[in-house]
């Protein structure tokens, strides 16, 4: 509560001083444990701001809305550490100018919310490298461990079962701050790489392609997982890919706004044990 009040005041000050044109935050949703994005332009609107442990959504995707940042004015945004990582990636991929973003950082343990010190992306580099060294989640998800113990056949069956529920609503894509392509690969039909109807093969291909596009970029904010209406454990694939790039290339996505994207760079001595 104290954090929320403090941040309401901060937002009002930021807007009054004219240093930001808008602040993106949270407001109450349709049920007590749901939150909705709030776009604050006036100090009255700031009174609707809510900040508690149920504010899970990574809002950074709204920053790449067409035209939002083109007037070169600054925008404030409420972000968890994962959110800060995702705007670093967006900046590294030249999707936004990091100077235009005022970060209102917060994190929560249990039901307690605490503010994070700093306003610019650079202020959080220490915090982010700490997360890289000491992941918050030390133990692996039991389901992930179970999948890794399966053989290829069982894994195939497991994922086919999961993907057979997919209804191709593309909510995962819409919710993901990293899926900003104007024209997604599934929308292109010359050539059509992926079966677009929602049979299992098409679903499988879609999810593989999405996971590949997110490898080395996903920050595990969980937006896709929460958005999925049929509860496919999408986070597991992304988590597995994040481990892969961390182990293989020591790449932790979103450490800084100038970090080179892992699949757009290389080292001459990258491992190649699998190449005949």
């Amino acid at each position: 509560m104290i954090t929320q009040e403090k941040y309401r005041t901060t937002v009002k000050e930021l807007l009054a001083s004219g240093s930001v044109k808008m602040v993106i935050g949270y407001k109450p949703g349709s049920t007590p444990d749901r939150r909705r994005p709030l776009f604050i332009r006036t100090s009255e609107e700031a009174d609707q701001l809510v900040l508690d442990s149920t504010c899970m959504t990574n809002l950074s995707g709204y920053l790449v809305t067409e035209g939002l940042l083109s007037d070169e004015k600054r925008v404030g945004i409420f972000l968890r550490p994962e959110g800060i990582r995702s705007i670093n990636i967006l900046a590294a991929e030249y999707q936004l100018n990091i100077e235009q973003i005022v970060i209102l950082g917060f994190d929560s343990t249990g039901r307690d919310v605490r503010p994070l010190e700093g306003r610019n992306a650079g202020d959080f580099s220490g915090l982010l490298s700490e997360i890289k060294e000491k992941p918050v989640q030390t133990s692996k998800e039991p389901l992930l461990e179970r999948i890794e113990k399966m053989n290829a056949q069982e894994r195939f069956d497991f994922w086919q079962e999961e993907f057979s529920r997919c209804i191709k609503c593309y909510a995962c894509r819409q919710a993901c701050p990293m899926c900003y392509c104007r024209r997604c690969i599934v929308d292109s039909n010359q050539p059509q790489w992926i079966n677009t109807s929602s049979h299992t093969l098409g679903n499988f291909e879609w999810n593989i392609v999405r996971a590949f596009h997110l490898s080395g970029r996903c920050v595990q904010c969980g937006n896709c997982d929460r958005a999925c209406p049929v509860n496919i454990p999408l986070r597991l694939i992304n988590q597995r890919m994040a481990t892969e790039v961390l182990d293989g290339f020591d790449h932790f996505a979103g450490l800084s706004p100038t970090q080179e994207p892992v699949l757009a760079s290389f080292k001459k001595d990258d491992t190649e044990t699998f190449i005949l």
Binding site: A152, N207, F212, R240, M241, K267, F274, I275
Partner: peptide, 19 residues
């Protein structure tokens, strides 16, 4: 070199999804 990185990641992905 670029291809090699891509394959390594893609290969892990295929493996994880059961191919």
């Amino acid at each position: 070199y670029h291809a090699r990185r891509r394959w390594m990641v893609f290969r892990a992905l295929l493996d994880f999804t059961g191919i």
